[in-house]
């Protein structure tokens, strides 16, 4: 038997009503094993204009590279248990920010290890269907990552966060919907 998956529709401009109770500015409660990191970025449309009604959802492994966990009610935006899941809307300037721990490497296709990364699901008004992308951490293993190998070399940088100058534990990573630095999105 085969059914067809329900068709997507846009999340629209008012998704906060239904979704914001799970907004997560800190995915990793104190004591979570792993290296703490803050990720900051901005989401821009085809005119370079900030998108103030976008939502990113994060899915990541723990520091040992294992997936799995249970999402419970965050308290003031902070997760009370590390689940690997986070939900972060953009603000009026199209910016987002969250803290977490750096994930460990995860097994990939054909046994090749994947470099540490966050899976990102992006939705917003104007997107009729969600988009998938990834944020990679600066690491020496990037060159051997089996998924980055699928991406044309000149576009790979759009998936790799950069160190924020003067702030060691903070990474910057923007999402651009169109243009010369259009973020790589995956057919996932």
């Amino acid at each position: 038997m085969s059914l067809q998956a329900t068709t997507w529709q846009t999340v629209g401009p008012y998704f906060r009503i239904g979704l914001e109770y799970l907004n997560t500015t800190d995915l990793a409660p104190a004591g979570t094993p792993g290296e703490p990191v803050t990720v900051e970025g901005q989401i821009l449309d085809g005119n370079g204009k900030p998108i103030s009604d976008a939502l990113i959802e994060i899915w990541q492994a723990n520091a040992s590279g294992e997936y799995g966990g249970t999402v419970d009610n965050p308290v003031d935006g902070a997760a009370t248990v590390f689940s690997g899941f986070g939900r972060v809307p953009t603000d009026d300037e199209g910016r987002f920010s969250f803290s977490t721990i750096q994930p460990g490497p995860v097994a990939g296709p054909s046994g090749a290890m994947q470099s540490p990364h966050l899976a990102i699901r992006l939705t917003m008004r104007g997107l009729l269907r969600g988009l998938s992308t990834r944020m990679y951490f600066p690491a020496e293993t990037l060159n051997s990552d089996p998924i980055l190998q699928l991406v044309p070399e000149q576009r790979r940088a759009t998936l790799i966060a950069t160190q924020k100058p003067g702030t060691p534990a903070t990474l910057q990573w923007n999402i651009e919907m169109q243009g010369e630095r259009e973020t790589v999105f995956f057919d996932c």
Binding site: D45, G46, N47, K49, I51, M124, R125, G126, L127, L131, L150, V151, R155, M177, Q178, E182, T183, V184, F185, F186, D187
Partner: peptide, 10 residues
């Protein structure tokens, strides 16, 4: 202004 223009990568 929000739909990606580059093809998605499988």
């Amino acid at each position: 202004e929000r739909a990606p223009k580059q093809p998605l990568i499988k």
